[in-house]
């Protein structure tokens, strides 16, 4: 870069030829302690290490640069070079991503396989928005977490009929409606109070969210439905930033991405175990839905596949078919 030129002192046998350092910004919404927050920092560190410091990724946690719902646009306009993008907040713009918001398209335990399968089509979709797909993180299996005394365990849609369930996006709202629940929007800052006070009867999302916000303390009745989460959390990089990298540096980015996903998998195993421990420590209950019970839920919301296909267009259908073709 510019400035700070150090006088050469003769002994430079170890130094690389004076390569330009490529500086990049990376925005995400999680805290530095969150499993995904840690993964992104791990990725940045790995890239720096593998590239001998020629790629310097500055990570901005907790929406430090842009809000999550702006992530896709921010990368597109080069406001940030990289961002973690949740499809649930961006699929209103990149409509072909919408199928990833519908729970039940693939087995969340096999997210690495899913990631591998969709990478080409994701790149096809994101190319239109001047960016490229890098890697994804585990969003966990979906759970119901209920604070209504009358519905401790959720076995079938009948158990949540009429309950006020917190939603977080259009497609999750539609899914909950299809299951007979009353979806309701609550802002994140007030979610804890809403559960505590019974403004809502429960929620339905991936368990990491429930863990992060300690929602199991006020809604301790957990039923693991085990569908894919109603969002796909992926990292994308702008075309402009990608082209600044040499071929070799691009390879390094992809290698670091694989390592970051390995790292994330390891983190999530421990993290999941400690989540269920935490639930039990506050006297909560954990029920794991059977395959048959899960099938009933999937059957009930099957109509959404057609709806999302109509919404998300040709590429969206391709994405959806790719995921549905994966073995459960």
């Amino acid at each position: 870069g510019c400035g700070g030129s150090t006088p050469s002192n003769g002994n430079e046998s170890n130094d690389k030829p004076a390569g330009e350092v490529v500086a990049m910004t990376f925005n995400h919404a999680f805290t530095e302690q969150d499993s995904r927050g840690k993964t992104y920092q791990f990725f940045a560190d790995k890239v720096k290490e593998l590239s001998d410091g020629t790629i310097d990724i500055q990570v901005y946690p907790t929406e430090g640069l842009v809000k999550n719902q702006e992530a896709l646009k921010a990368v597109m306009t080069n406001t940030v070079d990289m961002a973690a993008c949740p499809t649930s907040l961006n699929s209103n713009e990149a409509k072909a991503l919408a199928p990833l918001d519908v729970p039940g398209l693939f087995n969340p335990r096999k997210w690495r396989e899913a990631n591998e399968a969709i990478t080409p089509i994701m790149n096809e979709i994101l190319a239109e928005y001047k960016q490229r797909y890098l890697f994804a993180t585990d969003e966990g299996e979906t759970i119901f977490y209920i604070n209504n005394k009358n519905a401790r365990e959720v076995h079938s849609p009948a158990d949540i009929k009429g309950l006020r369930i917190r939603d977080h996006g259009m497609w999750i709202g539609k899914t909950l409606e299809a299951w007979g629940a009353s979806p309701m929007t609550v802002v994140p800052a007030d979610v804890a109070v809403a559960f505590d006070r019974g403004t809502v009867d429960g929620g339905y999302t991936g368990w990491p969210f429930v863990y992060n916000f300690k929602l199991f303390e006020s809604a301790p009745n957990i039923s693991v439905l085990g569908l894919s989460n109603s969002t796909w959390q992926y990292v994308s990089i702008s075309d402009a930033a990608w082209q600044k990298l040499s071929k070799e540096q691009q390879e390094i980015m992809l290698e670091a991405a694989e390592l970051a996903m390995d790292y994330n998998e390891g983190l999530m195993e421990d993290y999941e175990a400690s989540f269920y421990e935490a639930v039990e420590s506050v006297g909560g209950t954990v029920y794991r839905c059977t395959d048959e019970e899960r099938a009933v839920f999937m059957e009930a919301s099957k109509g959404l596949y057609e709806e999302v296909a109509a919404y998300s267009g040709e590429k969206g259908v391709k994405l959806m078919e790719t995921l549905r073709a994966l073995p459960w």
Partner: peptide
């Protein structure tokens, strides 16, 4: 200067926030 495109987004996001 690229970040100036944020003006619209910051405003939009805040104006449409439920809070």
């Amino acid at each position: 200067p690229n970040l100036l495109s944020q003006l619209c987004l910051i405003t939009y996001t805040q104006a449409t926030s439920v809070t």
